Amino acid sequence: MGEFLNANLEFPTVLFTFLLVLVIAYWLIVLLGSADTEALDGGAADGFGGFLGSVGLGGVPATVGLSVLVLVAWFVSLAGATVTEGALLRVAVLVVALVVAWLVTRVLVVPLRRLFPATSGDSRTAFVGRTCVIRTGTVTETFGQAEVTAADGSSAIVQVRQTGTDTFTAGSTAVIYEYDQHGEFFWIVPTPGQRELS
Rank of each mutant, 00 (worst) to 15 (best):
G153L: 06
V104A: 08
T149M: 12
T165G: 08
F11E: 06
F51H: 11
F51T: 07
P12T: 06
A25P: 01
Q162F: 05
L108A: 15
T125D: 08
P111D: 09
G53V: 10
V72L: 04
T165M: 11
T131Q: 12
T37D: 05
V23P: 03
T125N: 12
L28K: 01
A92K: 00
A25K: 05
R106E: 08
L15P: 01
T119D: 07
A126D: 03
L19C: 14
G193E: 13
G53E: 15
G183N: 12
Y179Q: 03
V139M: 06
A126N: 02
C132R: 01
I188T: 11
L69Y: 11
Q145E: 13
S172V: 00
Y177W: 15
G193Y: 01
W27Y: 12
G80A: 03
G56A: 09
S54T: 12
T105I: 06
S198C: 01
N8T: 03
L88I: 12
V99A: 11
V23G: 10
V95R: 02
T165H: 13
G42V: 03
G129D: 09
S198M: 14
T63P: 00
F16S: 00
P192C: 08
L22T: 09
G183W: 12
T136K: 02
A25H: 07
A150Q: 10
T105M: 09
L108M: 15
A118P: 05
G2P: 00
L69H: 03
A174L: 04
R113V: 13
A35M: 14
D36Q: 13
W102K: 06
G164R: 03
L40M: 14
G2A: 11
D36M: 05
Y177V: 10
E85F: 09
P190E: 05
W74P: 00
W74L: 04
N6A: 14
R130A: 07
